[in-house]
Write a protein that binds this DNA or RNA. Structure first.
Lengths: 178, 178
DNA sequence: CGGACACCTGTTATGATATAACTATAACCG
DNA sequence: CGGTTATAGTTATATCATAACAGGTGTCCG
């Protein structure tokens, strides 16, 4: 069907929240790691070996990944560390904003946007129940509304979460064929 | 200070998402349980002893409560059950809609609204980081927007949730004094 | 009534997620 | 270089959740 969006070569990181997984080449991953390193540098934070290793495991998939899955994958590669070390690395990556936590799955995924760090816009998360892929789309207008709703209730908001579970474009298309 | 909102006697359940805890008398609790029982009856579901006990523990506090905390409190009262039994009861209560799950805390709280079951409006959750109280306010317009944002990304939404962590009215007032 | 069926609970075991407390090492900076 | 702070190692444990199977209870219908 013509439903399939064939991404062009110039398809920027930001274009689709659900890029074709085929694009996740080793080269792409290296670039992603490079960007993360820069974020750490800009904030005068240390992008240590362990943090980089953990980040690479997270960034190597478009799906969300649990802490113990990261642990296992690092283990397979010969890096044996304790759970707590993974969690500490994750905390640092979260603080830097290069990964996000998916509350509804207790799992993590790499941030592939720049606008919420650069322009202060907050994203909402779209998590595919079939393939696990997670996408982010801008949700600043939604967060603004949430802030207003909280204010009406005399509630002082600090952290807001918006998560959606459903089917990503590819899995939606697959389901419609069936 | 005049900040303190003195709730009137006619202060309905629905009025404020953060009612005064003092109001949570034994009588109130009994009424809440009665309403839950009715929801089960209306849906031809069984409000069993265990489910009622679990619901009572959840409804007895305005804060969210974890499964193992429920387990412990029932244990103190002489009802010794396995974790799985608590979770099964929780599942039934969630299905019936008389409690909600707070994803960001892996905890549960009693629903004190009727409009989303009756009128199909979905609430957003406001969770106090200081006292643990959880309030619900209508968020149908927010969920509508989220649906639109998902649609733009060609994502098929199935489950959506919005959670806010911050300070409830009382804790906000307390913090401002300091 | 009593048997079939669906639903609920008990029992045991285990899996999955997350952190506490303390020690040791590495990086940073005056 | 030496003190301070941040990071990571080590060990142990807390917390959250479900699998698998056996036994019991309620309901409905012939």
């Amino acid at each position: 069907m013509s439903e399939t969006q064939a991404p062009t070569k110039s398809d920027a990181n930001q274009r689709s929240p659900f890029p074709n997984p085929d694009q996740q080449t080793a080269k792409k991953l290296a670039q992603t790691v490079e960007r993360a390193a820069k974020v750490f540098a800009d904030k005068s934070l240390r992008f240590t070996k362990l943090r980089q290793q953990v980040f690479e495991e997270i960034a190597a998939t478009h799906a969300s990944i649990g802490a113990y899955e990261i642990l296992a994958r690092l283990g397979d590669k010969g890096t044996r560390v304790a759970p707590i070390s993974i969690y500490r690395a994750i905390d640092a990556l979260l603080d830097a904003g290069v990964i996000h936590r998916l509350e509804s799955k207790n799992a993590f995924f790499a941030c592939r946007r720049t606008d919420h760090t650069v322009k202060g816009r907050r994203p909402i998360f779209l998590s595919c129940e079939k393939c696990g892929a997670v996408g982010e789309v801008d949700g600043q207008h939604i967060f603004d509304l949430i802030g207003e709703a909280a204010k009406e209730a005399k509630f002082t908001p600090r952290i807001k979460f918006v998560e959606v579970q459903g089917l990503c474009p590819r899995c939606t298309a697959a389901a419609e064929k069936a």
